[in-house]
Amino acid sequence: MAGFDWIVPVILTMITAATPLVFAGIGELITEKSGVLNLGVEGMMLVGAVTGFITATVTGNYFLAVLAAAFAGSVMAFLFGVLTLSLMANQVATGLALTLFGVGLSALMGQEFVGMPVDPLDKLYISGLTDIPYIGPIIFGQDGLVYLSFAVVAAVSWFLYKTKAGLILRAVGDSHDAAHSIGYSVIGIRYLAVMFGGAMSGIGGAYLSLAYTPMWAENMTAGRGWIALALIVFATWKPGLVLIGAYMFGGITILQLHAQAAGLDVPSQVLSMLPYVATVLVLVLISKDQSRIRKHAPACIGKIFHPAA
């Protein structure tokens, strides 16, 4: 570990670790901002991962694969919408069921594709720029989905706080009765938000099966959907903080692996604990200031909307 040469590989690995969390987290953020809690992120990610993988293997077209993953994720989310928004089922129970369903469905879909390798997603290479020492490979050497993840966070941030549509979405999440009484379609808006969340989860899953570890293996998300859910609370429902949280979570995981490989005499259990300790610490710090949470947390989250009431 002479000098700072190790920083670049750490950052490169951190980006791959964080990107699926950014996608799943930002999608679920929109879902929750509309007042819906969808705990099925893990299931939607898995279905996205397998759909993306199958499409890439069959067609060889990665653009199509990512689109298919987004579509598959939003179909899953649409199912969730039908059950919770139209049929008014309990959101927590339905979300859990969606995860179980996604685990099973993705395993079934992927049966023929287990053990099949696929080329990883192409990385950007701009002669001259990518060759700049240190920052070149970090800024100009990523795959398309990494750039897309930053663009989506920026777009969501702009949408929520700078557009009328974003204001309406937040209104629906904060007081569905008020939004309904001035004529907005609460259910319709929530369908769109939930399906956007599904599409992003699908892309997050596809990032795993096409770029992170380019293969399909059952349950390959290994709990990342749940981490994405936790990230939103961690970020107090702010898009920028979802991004920072994802990179912090990914970064600490990678740093502790590097510390171990470098033979630092820190117990690996302590290092493995760090991301979670950091999350708890931030939660404690944030919750000291209750008003900040209340300002951004959707007031109607998880509540069922009865249009007649």
């Binding site: 795993l208 709990g223 490989a261």
Partner: peptide, 21 residues
């Protein structure tokens, strides 16, 4: 040590860290 028997992502991260070292 990755503290899991099965997590493709984390296993890959560990491999990268070791190669980088």
């Amino acid at each position: 040590w990755v503290s899991t028997w099965y997590d493709p992502g984390k296993e890959a991260d560990a491999a990268k860290a070791l190669i980088d070292q």
